[in-house]
Design a protein around this nucleic acid. Structure first.
Lengths: 154, 154
DNA sequence: TTCGATGCAAACTGTTTGCACGGCT
DNA sequence: AGCCGTGCAAACAGTTTGCATCGAA
């Protein structure tokens, strides 16, 4: 799904929910979808303000749940009291995150094999799986060998 | 490993690190190991104060990392801006968490095959896995059928 | 015109820290 | 005696919220 399709999806999601299509919401959307890497709420505020400097922090925090609810953005919690976000270009929910503990970079890779696992484990407990995530904390090999991480800090 | 063995391990860990065995630290340890379910830092403070009412919030927060570092307690982050803790009676680090989104209860189950996932996924990226967690968000069947969750809220 | 959306700043939650006092070793 | 550990309260970070105003439909 490209950006224009995503933008349309966002607008129609807003309309369907009786929410208004405002410049601020659009600026936040554009800012999010211009990102190639994970970003924080605060970073999103900065990016959005580059597009429309009237965007406030509150609106960013009020818009993020809308974009998450509409599956346009995914939320990634790596256990750091700080949430990361990522535009959800494909609609994939079976994703594993590998976090480099040296540079904090988050890699994502498809993990379709995860699905059967979640199902088998949940049904044992009388639960219906909704989503699942595999998170791996790992050391960067280049860091251990050369004392530096080839990936820039987040 | 039973509680006495764990207590010994805690005491010797403190000694080895040149840390002091104080009443407050012991009270916090006892409080943690009396729990059968996951608990929060705030709950641990209450429990510890029942044992020694001189325990302060600061000491709880300063003791938790020690217990985690010594593998006596595991930290569980379910993406709720709130961390849960659990006495680590067996020494198992390959655990999957299944979180009921209706009642917030956390189930844990062994997932020994997780290790393979983490390895296969990390090596593709030139990383060496350190730790990993699999988290499944699921709906409680009884909630969906009867409008109530048989498990009490956390 | 109407009522949802916004910006601002204050409130809030969980956690961390500076400081002077207290108590292990 | 020395110095680590402690309680207290203030600080802190990220996020949420109340309120008066703004603006999309």
């Amino acid at each position: 799904m490209n950006n224009e399709a995503s933008r349309d999806k966002f607008k129609s999601y807003l309309s369907t929910k009786g929410l208004r299509v405002t410049n601020q919401r659009l600026a936040i959307f554009e800012a999010a979808f211009a990102q190639k890497e994970h970003f924080t709420a605060e970073e999103l505020l900065d990016f959005a303000r580059d597009i429309d400097d009237s965007v406030s922090r509150a609106t960013v925090y009020r818009t993020l749940p809308i974009m998450i609810e509409s599956s346009l953005v995914r939320e990634v919690d790596i256990g750091k009291n700080l949430k990361y976000y990522l535009p959800n270009t494909d609609n994939n929910t079976q994703v594993a995150q590998i976090i480099c503990t040296d540079c904090d970079k988050i890699f994502e890779i498809n993990a379709p094999f995860m699905e059967w696992y979640g199902n088998s484990v949940s049904t044992k407990l009388g639960l219906t799986p909704v989503s699942q995530r595999l998170q791996v904390n790992a050391h960067c090999n280049s860091f251990r060998q050369h004392g530096t991480c080839k990936n820039r800090p987040h």
